[in-house]
């Protein structure tokens, strides 16, 4: 099966076949690309002496898994991102709804939000570190605030794109005010809001690592300690292993959370082309 045809038919298969058969088939392209990337990495490591190859990294990963360091990094990244991002989602979606309801607020805020979204959030790290101290949650604040503008703007755009006909239908059926927002505007805007959320997630992750680079143990996830150690010793094996851990974490979140939610939202709304034959 070619990767492209797999990508086209996957959502339908997810829905129609209850067994894990299609799910495994959907993983084939993912595993294939992983193999290709590993091969490229091997060649790069063979050319560049300082870069540890896949074998050395896997050995290091094995060691880190055995002594609990890998699990600890994964666990702490998950908790840190989970908490910070949950707060960002609540603030971002609520804020986005608020600015889409008020023309005045939209005109006043949107330009600044767009600028904040484009600006590297890591610029706030020194400010926050001095104001709030080098505490775990001072980086949490940076990560949260980095994600909020993207989620707010995504929500605003999604709410603006809600078909007016659905709002009229909602009003005709007796909804207004807050309950119209909850029962019509939010569900209608959800696919668009999810796009903003995904963008916010990637910005949040960048902010996290930027914080780690800035100051060793700022977030307490352990990534900073690894960065500091690699810088000191010049040995990149542990660093590469940590990169692999973070990469796996990102892929898992993307595949098993964001893609799933998007596919589900789109399938329910009839936004997925079932493909031929009709």
């Amino acid at each position: 099966m070619s990767p492209s045809s797999g990508a086209l038919t996957r959502p339908e298969q997810d829905e129609s076949s209850p067994a894990g058969h299609s799910r495994i088939r959907a993983l084939v392209p993912l595993a294939g690309v992983a193999a290709l990337l590993t091969a490229a990495w091997g060649i790069a490591a063979w050319v560049a002496d300082a870069l540890p190859g896949p074998t050395a990294t896997v050995a290091q990963l094995w060691e880190m898994a055995a002594d609990g360091r890998a699990g600890s990094i994964l666990w702490r990244v998950a908790v840190f991102m989970g908490v910070s991002f949950a707060i960002a989602m609540v603030l971002g979606i609520a804020g986005g709804l608020a600015i889409s309801m008020s023309r005045w607020a939209d005109r006043g805020l949107s330009a600044y939000l767009a600028a904040l979204q484009a600006m590297p959030t890591s610029m706030w790290i020194p400010v926050v570190a001095i104001l709030l101290g080098t505490d775990v949650w001072s980086l949490g604040a940076v990560v949260t605030l980095g994600a909020v503008p993207a989620i707010m703007l995504g929500t605003r755009t999604a709410v603006r794109n809600v078909p007016p006909l659905l709002l009229r239908a909602g009003r005709t059926l007796g909804e207004r005010g807050t309950s119209l927002v909850i029962r019509v505007v939010l569900p209608a805007a959800l696919p668009g809001i999810m796009t903003g959320v995904e963008l916010g997630w990637s910005i949040a992750f960048r902010s996290l690592v930027a914080g780690e680079i800035f100051s060793g143990a700022l977030s307490g996830t352990g990534i900073g300690t690894v960065i500091a150690r690699s810088r000191r010793t010049g040995d990149l094996t542990e660093m590469m292993a940590t990169i692999v851990i973070v990469l796996v974490f990102s892929v898992v979140i993307d595949r098993w959370v964001f893609s799933r939610v998007q596919a589900h939202l789109r399938a329910r709304r009839g936004l997925v082309d079932p493909g031929l034959p009709h």
Binding site: L166, R168, T172, L173, G174, R183
Partner: peptide, 30 residues
């Protein structure tokens, strides 16, 4: 607008994220 005056539009205006059952229940819930 009021529930004693219902409008049926040229385009169905059903809520795409709800089943037919939930769409018909929508106004009753309101």
């Amino acid at each position: 607008p009021g529930p004693e005056r219902m409008i049926v539009f040229q385009e169905h205006a059903l809520f795409p994220w709800l089943s037919v059952q939930a769409n018909v229940e929508f106004g009753l819930r309101s």
